[in-house]
Design a protein around this nucleic acid. Structure first.
Lengths: 226, 226
DNA sequence: TCGCTTACCTACTCTGGAGTAAGGCTACGT
DNA sequence: ACGTAGCCTTACTCCAGAGTAGGTAAGCGA
């Protein structure tokens, strides 16, 4: 039962790591950092832990990514960019407003579902720090809000009416984005739900409203390419 | 310009604090702790800072409230209880569903507006910690969701219809509570808005939905005791 | 083969902050 | 008055964890 030197099993030789190009190491370090930060929070996480998870020694992190603060900021930036790209990629301008919204929501929740750690570090951890970290997140949120508001306002002007919606477009978009964020947060603690159920839930809430839902009027996605 | 011993100004004599009963001190310490935790987060906050803000020395905190973890848990518990009491106090069962919802929202946002620090420590900080802190928050959220769900389901059965709303009551309630939480969070970063505007915004979003709002159908609170 | 660069390591230093020991001051009971 | 209970403090101990000094080895071009 004692295999001190099994030559086939190679997980974590505590000795020297294989030489890899900087680019690859940086990605590995960022991945590890996202994992650790999302689990323990900024202050709770230790650089030793990050280096451990990344399978590399601490000085490498300082050499490549700088201080702990720099590392955290880099995490936020990378994950925020990825998320926004996913959302933008899911929306197509030629579709009707509700379908655009639906696809945006699906893309958003899809990303969160497949990158729970990313979302955790983005939404929970970065907000918990007062520092300059939040700015990155805020910038992303602003862009998301602008995106949603554009969809809404365009829908309003298309129909010729809807002054209330158009004028309050930004505000409503903020509310929706907020609702989406916290529903995603809620999802973190209820992983049994599927993406579509979550997305449909929010879609119904924000498009139909309780008033309609009480009368059994629900929103359903249109049948596409049957 | 040098008043080493002004007998009238008495802010923070660094010397000995006045003797006060334990009960009072505990409240002061909790108040200080909420302030500090909300500002720096759990790990970022130091007991020295708390003792400083509380105007008392560190060993007193350990004597009265126990460890840092105990102190934090005590903060969460107190603030969660206060918040839920505020909401329950604002709802009256004999009113129609939408009005109950409206009053609940108003009470909720009213509390958050007047106790921003409480909300910060509750929602942001406690979620950022993975530990047993979250449980207290979760318990409160469960109660809030149950409350909202009860309002919705009752509304559904009153009207005889609304199976969709009734059956999905809990889920929709969760979405609404989530939306409320994050709108409150958003509010922290946009303090210029008033309580009523924020509450009305969410009310419109969840009761009418975008679909209605696009057609200028908005929800307005009924005129009470004109 | 030598030398240069770059990846990588062990093994520290040093500070911030949790938690405590040991003892003063004050008020009230007797 | 004088003890004693309990409020309050200074002044530590001690450890986790950020950041670094200094050195090893692997590839690569001459």
């Amino acid at each position: 039962m004692s295999l001190p030197e099994s030559p086939l099993a190679e997980p974590e030789k505590p000795g020297r790591a294989k030489r890899l190009p900087r680019e690859v190491r940086e990605r590995q370090i960022l991945d590890a950092a996202v994992t650790v930060f999302s689990q323990y929070g900024y202050h709770g996480a230790s650089m030793d832990e990050v280096s451990d998870v990344a399978g590399i020694s601490k000085p490498m992190i300082y050499a490549y990514l700088g201080s702990k603060e720099d590392l955290f900021a880099a995490c936020i930036h990378r994950e925020a960019t990825r998320l926004l790209e996913a959302i933008v990629g899911g929306i197509h301008a030629e579709e009707p407003a509700d379908v655009q919204l639906w696809h945006g929501l699906t893309a958003f929740f899809g990303f969160v579902g497949e990158h729970r750690e990313s979302w955790r570090v983005l939404h929970r951890q970065s907000l918990a720090q007062g520092g300059p970290f939040t700015e990155e997140l805020m910038a992303m949120r602003e862009r998301a809000i602008t995106l949603v508001a554009a969809v809404l306002v365009r829908a309003g002007s298309d129909e010729g009416v809807g002054h209330a919606a158009s004028r309050a477009g930004e505000a409503l978009a903020a509310a929706l984005v907020g609702a989406g964020e916290s529903l995603a947060d809620w999802w973190l603690d209820h992983p049994e739900e599927t993406v579509d159920v979550i997305a449909a839930r929010l879609m119904n809430l924000v498009w139909m409203g309780f008033g309609d839902l009480l009368e059994d009027r629900v929103w359903k996605p249109p049948i596409i390419e049957a």
